[in-house]
């Protein structure tokens, strides 16, 4: 099925608009990162990153999210080449890995809070939980979005519609992994040192 000129123009606008929204999201993360950088040593007398972060755990999280982003890219490729079954498999893997990532992150948060290192303890922890937590919130929203996409696919399954909506999700998902590069580096790697 071919698209009319208007539909192509409309899709173009939506992609540009969504991309610009992601750029504004970048700026939001910037303010959170800047806040974290300023407050990372304000531990209120308590332990800092080097005592609290477990690099091995975080590396596994990082590789899971990276794999999720990779598999999402494969899903994008699949649907652009009309391979519906492969697409569903890859999208399913994306969601599963995303859930694994989020579970690991929530476990980490739970452990910290259980040991008494809550966001209310110090500025450092407030900044840590907020920055990493905002990223996690974006991941959660992405997972809801991906699930709705699968539901929409089985509801009506019109190829170009799903392609259009999915390519927006894919960009969003890749973008979240890009943000994670910097959380991994600046929060965890530099925090542990």
């Amino acid at each position: 099925m071919s698209e009319s000129a208007e539909m192509i123009a409309k899709r173009d606008k939506v992609q540009l608009g969504f991309w610009l929204y992601l750029m504004t999201d970048c700026m939001l993360f910037t303010s959170l990162f800047a806040t974290y950088m300023i407050l990372r040593n304000s531990t209120n007398g308590g332990p800092g990153g080097s005592e609290l972060f477990s690099m091995g755990f975080v590396l596994v999280e990082t590789l899971i999210l990276l794999t999720s982003s990779y598999v999402c890219g494969l899903a994008n490729l699949a649907i652009h080449n009309g391979r519906k079954k492969e697409f569903v498999v890859y999208l399913g893997a994306t969601i599963a890995l995303g859930i694994a990532f989020l579970t690991m992150e929530l476990t980490e948060f739970g452990k910290l809070i259980g040991e008494g290192h809550t966001p209310q303890t110090s500025a450092f922890l407030s900044a840590f939980f907020t920055l990493v937590g905002t990223h996690g919130l974006h991941i959660a929203i992405g997972l809801i979005w991906a699930s709705v996409l699968i539901w929409a696919l089985y509801r009506q399954g019109r190829q170009e519609d799903i392609l259009r909506k999915f390519s927006l999700f894919a960009v969003f998902w890749h973008f979240l992994d890009v943000v994670w590069i910097f959380i991994f580096t600046i929060v965890y790697a530099m925090g542990v040192k």
Binding site: L39, S42, N44, T121, S122, L125, S126, F129, T130
Partner: peptide, 14 residues
């Protein structure tokens, strides 16, 4: 809302 310490005068806020 959640008692965090970004800008409070105590707890390390700035």
């Amino acid at each position: 809302l959640m008692g965090m310490h970004f800008f409070t005068s105590m707890g390390g806020g700035n």
